[in-house]
Design a protein around this nucleic acid. Structure first.
Lengths: 160, 160
DNA sequence: TCCCTGTGCTTGCAAATGCAAACACACTGG
DNA sequence: CCAGTGTGTTTGCATTTGCAAGCACAGGGA
């Protein structure tokens, strides 16, 4: 019934493996999965779990996210973003802080996309050099040095 | 080393669900998974596939990547914060946007450092899993008028 | 020729996912 | 008191993952 996406992930893996010039068995060993299973995955006969996917990514020395995107498991809203990956991976942030950063970043992306749509020849490069169209101004930014946490951005209610 | 992660993802999901103030069944419906299965996932009795994880993330309105990280499926990336590097390198952001993100991120870092100093034995793990009294949806960056009823930051619905 | 090593593929089968149905418990009314 | 509704949990089962063992084919070397 549903196997359209599965095929693409397999092709992608086989592609990457060919590029790395390693055999199916070799990748299977490096990834810690069985050879026949990897074969089935590459041909789209099996839908690997995230764990297996992650191991394959490690074996291929490529980003796990790239595989997840290919598998259609992250296509969420953003195709891919190093900033998001870094934010998500940052263990020094609280969950709420993380979510705030993600929300803001995504809103920026969305806004830039909308900007690019509205303007005719407005590419991202062009927009980048522009000061700021509209909505960006609404965001809290003390253009003077580092804004103090006591200023406007107060993520933790911090009672007591 | 192979099982403690499974528990944490379940706790994380239950945590997020509680914060969203929705019932198990409700989340199960929104995520398109069965209630009993979600129950087992939250208690760490089952290890959900990436597909299910993705659906749960959608149901919770949180980033899929956040869940994958919790499930230990993405920490492949640099664990440390190259957030700043990623922000600086992101060519899709305007200078203003970039500065906003940097300011916010640094304020978070500073706040966390201060908190670690002031707090008792507050480890990073503790702070990370600490449930927010308000809930994630109530993003505390409200100085802009762009926060939607949803709680998500919606940048000015592009007007002509 | 036969044997050996390497490639990928097919075949059962244990173990796990994921769900429908039913259960236990608490709360609300009638 | 029992019926109805809400919560989360347990149980049994179809389906699937993922692997060990084996198959088919190709290329060397003796």
């Amino acid at each position: 019934m549903e196997l359209p996406k599965v095929g693409s992930i397999g092709e992608y893996i086989r592609d990457q493996r060919k590029q790395a010039k390693i055999s199916l068995r070799q990748l299977a060993t490096q990834a810690g999965v069985s050879n026949p299973y990897l074969s089935q995955i590459e041909r789209g006969l099996r839908k690997p779990s995230a764990e297996i996917l992650n191991q394959i990514a490690k074996g291929l020395r490529i980003s796990s996210q790239a595989l997840y995107v290919q598998a259609g498991l992250i296509e969420d809203r953003e195709p891919d973003s190093d900033v998001l990956a870094a934010i998500v991976a940052d263990r020094t942030l609280t969950e709420r802080q993380r979510q705030v950063l993600i929300d803001i970043y995504e809103s920026f992306r969305k806004e830039n996309r909308a900007e690019a749509q509205a303007g005719t020849e407005r590419t991202a490069e062009n927009a980048r050099t522009e000061p700021a169209p509209q909505g960006v101004d609404a965001v809290p930014v003390e253009e003077t040095e580092t804004s103090s946490p006591n200023g406007r951005i107060q993520p933790e209610p911090k009672k007591g």
